[in-house]
Design a protein around this nucleic acid. Structure first.
Lengths: 218, 218
DNA sequence: CCCCGATCTAGACAATGTCAGGATTTTATC
DNA sequence: GATAAAATCCTGACATTGTCTAGATCGGGG
């Protein structure tokens, strides 16, 4: 049946007072992200999200089992964007495995800084896996698989499992910590530097790490 | 305890003693930490904290301006413990500046794993500085001063400000990210390894970074 | 001794998440 | 096509939360 998509579009434009919204699920996710950006995770409210979407306070229940489930779905969406950002960064880098790893790391940090609320939600909200046991959330797994592959490429075929694990821990820990400190405003020690130099400092820290990975030859 | 009553013994202190309860301020902080450990930051409730402390739901208002202020005070307490843990680790390490830096990093991660709820609160709750503008919270500053000093020692006297900043960003980012990933359960890739090897992997990642800091000679 | 301030309790208010039941629209079946 | 079933949304209610206001209780300084 070709009907569904057409119908929803017409609903969306015409019926402001309509009973059926059309695509409430997507609208709720968008509204939740906007609410999150304005009020933060602590000040998040399901009812406010419903208001922003133009529906009653109980409407979300038909699309998400709970407020946490809505946020979990948003987190999954965030992971998908993160994967896309890292993939783009890797593709743009092209060159050596080390360059790809550094690019992925910079992409990770850039994503966090561009979407701080999403980043916080992804790593601080309740874990999506717990809330969607048989659901979709493979995005985190895909993000990790990318990281592992790139690290393994840098280390070469001779690396042991423990060596790879250590490199992953260091690489992920570094970019994750940098991202978190930056978006949380904890990196006040970068304040005295002009913005351009700040960026360079962060980027250099990542590049140097990537360089140090291969150099040690383990 | 020899005291006839808990109330009278408080009097001599800072004038901010307990009258009815004994020392409600401290009791509330302890109760809040216990609540945090049980229910997490999301499930935290000021009323439940008051119940646990055995007082009415409005009693905390006389010691903390708001629920956030209570949590901020707890966060400050957490920073003090973090400083103590890092100082102890540094003192125990003794040796070279590089060894001290690695020890401080391991202490940072160990603290986070021992007090995950506190760690989350410290870096995820509302920022303490905002809530206590003219107050006490110098603990975060002290923790950072320690880090900076140790990093500067490793780099030597010839290091520029930008070089120090980059090293601080990398060092702090690495241990902070490691700590966060570990307590959040995101480091599932360490699952296949036995616990002892897991510890070794994390410790090695920190040690190798510390070693790479001085080696580059910048 | 008595009053005053510090400390705590009790009650109330708006706001929140969730559940139950009714209204309305869409879809599937005859 | 009409009609029953399903999906979608609304209104109302409940318990719980943080915070405010007012009253009670205790201790120490006048």
């Amino acid at each position: 049946m070709p009907a569904t998509s057409e119908r929803t579009e017409r609903r969306g434009q015409a019926g402001r007072g309509g009973y059926h919204h059309g695509d409430l699920r997507a609208a709720l996710l968008a509204a939740a992200e906007a609410e999150l950006a304005e009020n933060g995770l602590a000040g998040f409210s399901l009812r406010a999200t419903a208001r922003r979407a133009g529906v009653s306070h109980a409407a979300p229940a038909h699309h998400f089992a709970s407020a946490d489930a809505l946020l979990a779905a948003l987190a999954v969406l965030g992971f998908e964007r993160l994967v896309a950002a890292m993939e783009a960064a890797i593709a743009a880098a092209g060159g050596s495995a080390r360059a790809r790893l550094a690019a992925a790391g910079r992409g990770y940090v850039a994503f966090a800084r561009a979407n701080p609320h999403l980043f916080r939600l992804m790593f601080f909200g309740k874990r999506p896996e717990k809330l969607a046991p048989d659901g979709v959330p493979q995005a985190p797994g895909r993000a990790f698989a990318m990281l592992r592959q790139t690290v393994a490429d840098v280390l070469g075929p001779g690396a042991s499992e423990a060596e790879i694990a250590r490199a992953i821990a260091a690489a992920w820990g570094l970019v994750h910590g940098l991202a978190h400190l930056l978006i949380e405003g904890a990196a006040g020690f970068l304040q005295p530097f002009p913005p351009a130099e700040r960026e360079a400092i962060v980027a250099d820290a990542i590049d140097r790490f990537a360089a140090s990975l291969g150099a040690g030859s383990v």
